[in-house]
Design a protein around this nucleic acid. Structure first.
Length: 154
DNA sequence: GCCAACGTTGGC
DNA sequence: GCCAACGTTGGC
């Protein structure tokens, strides 16, 4: 099993939106970056766990945990004319973009803020979210990093 | 709003 | 294949 960190802007879709959904489950669509596409399509497996990270907001940080509920499949929003994420390059026959589905595992009582992560950067061994200029909306997390971050949450 | 850092585009 | 221009991300 692998571990991940998935970023989202809470003003668009945050962990509370997921927590309010009856199914506690959502499609992670709209990714339009090839590196991230490859992870969605090839590497993320059902049962993998991911930190849910809030970006571009008052208090950036990790707000909870989700599980991959459905593995990579073509992102239908790319096919929809008029959709903000429409991409004419992508077609059902030869899809360019992929998505997964995630389900809520846990919302932390208190988020692990970016500040806290930075303060513990030395022990977190190059957590990718802390790397200068990192912009990928999904990044892998090692088992050891996962454990150490969780310790910060408890 | 600023700006650094990065990905993508497109002319050559 | 190079690289400048442009758009986007995301913390501050």
């Amino acid at each position: 099993m692998k571990y991940w960190l998935m970023k989202s802007e809470p003003s668009v879709f945050g962990i509370d939106t997921l927590a309010r959904a009856r199914s506690k489950r959502t499609g992670w669509d709209g990714v339009r970056n090839y590196q991230v596409r490859n992870m969605l399509r090839d590497e993320m497996k059902k049962g993998d766990l991911a930190f849910f990270y809030h970006s571009s907001c008052e208090e950036p940080g990790i707000y909870g945990i989700v599980r991959i509920a459905k593995e990579g499949h073509p992102d239908p929003t790319a096919f929809e004319h008029g959709h903000p994420h429409h991409d004419p390059k992508s077609s059902p026959a030869t899809p360019t973009w992929y998505m997964v589905e995630v389900e809520l595992v846990e919302k932390f009582a208190l988020p692990i803020t970016l500040k806290t992560l930075k303060a513990n950067a030395d022990t977190l061994d190059e957590l990718l979210i802390l790397r200068r200029g990192n912009r990928l909306s999904i990044t892998p997390v090692t088992a050891s990093q996962w454990k150490k971050v969780l310790k910060l949450a408890r």
